[in-house]
Structure formats: structure tokens, C-alpha cells
């Protein structure tokens, strides 16, 4: 499935409640069913570490074997890319 983030968060990701909702209602159920997800950040300019953490930390912890194959990111700005890399790193450090 393709998850168009702009539809949920507008041009900036800082609302952790929205991140949590996307995680619980879309990302985790997809991983549970071993489905592929493309998270598309088109027209989103940035996101806080807290937001990306709320979106991805649990999926990495719960599905460490498949999460990196099943989730793909698209149209990320450099700012978003680096925040995703920060979260993926420290979450794996603490597994």
C-alpha cells in the first residue's frame, strides 16, 4: 500500500498523536499481514524526531526481521531522511 503522509499531516510532521494513529491503524496491521508499505512524504517539508519515533520505533521493535524489507520511503526531503535514519539507528541499538 502507499501511505500519502501529506493527507494526514500537512506539510510538517510534529503531531505525535497523528503519528501514533498512523502507526496503530496502518503500519502495524500491514506488517502483521507482511504487506509492503510505501510511505510517501511528497509535499511534506520536515518532521520532528518525536514524530518519526512515534511512527517507526514500535514497528522496528515489533518486526525487526521484516520491517526494513517491507517499508519503503518515497519523496523524503534531506531533513526527513536524516531524522528517519536517526530513529532507525537508535531503535536498533536498544533492541
Amino acid at each position: 500500500m502507499i501511505l500519502k503522509m501529506f493527507k494526514y499531516i500537512g506539510d510538517y510532521g510534529e503531531n505525535k498523536d497523528t503519528a501514533r494513529k498512523i502507526r496503530l491503524e496502518i503500519i502495524l496491521p500491514c506488517l502483521e499481514k507482511k504487506e509492503n508499505i510505501t510511505i510517501d512524504f511528497k509535499n511534506v517539508t520536515g518532521a520532528t524526531q518525536s514524530f518519526i519515533h512515534a511512527l517507526l520505533a514500535d514497528p522496528i521493535r515489533k518486526y525487526p526481521e521484516i520491517v526494513f524489507d517491507k517499508i519503503t520511503f518515497k519523496n523524503c526531503t534531506d531533513d526527513i531522511k536524516i531524522v528517519i535514519q536517526i530513529v532507525e539507528e537508535y531503535t536498533q541499538e536498544s533492541l
Binding site: 501514533r20 518525536s50 520505533a57 536498544s94
Partner: peptide, 23 residues
């Protein structure tokens, strides 16, 4: 880094990492 008011786990919880103020 890694200190949150919601857990002692260094990686935080699903909702909190304890990274905000350090950043």
C-alpha cells in the same frame, strides 16, 4: 540522550524516545 519521563529503557517507548531536549 535517551532519558524520558515515561520509561527507563534507553530506546524509549513506542511514543517517547527521550531525545527532544538533547536535540
Amino acid at each position: 540522550p535517551g532519558v524520558s519521563g515515561t520509561t527507563t529503557n534507553a530506546g524509549g517507548t513506542g511514543d517517547n524516545a527521550g531525545a527532544g531536549l538533547f536535540f
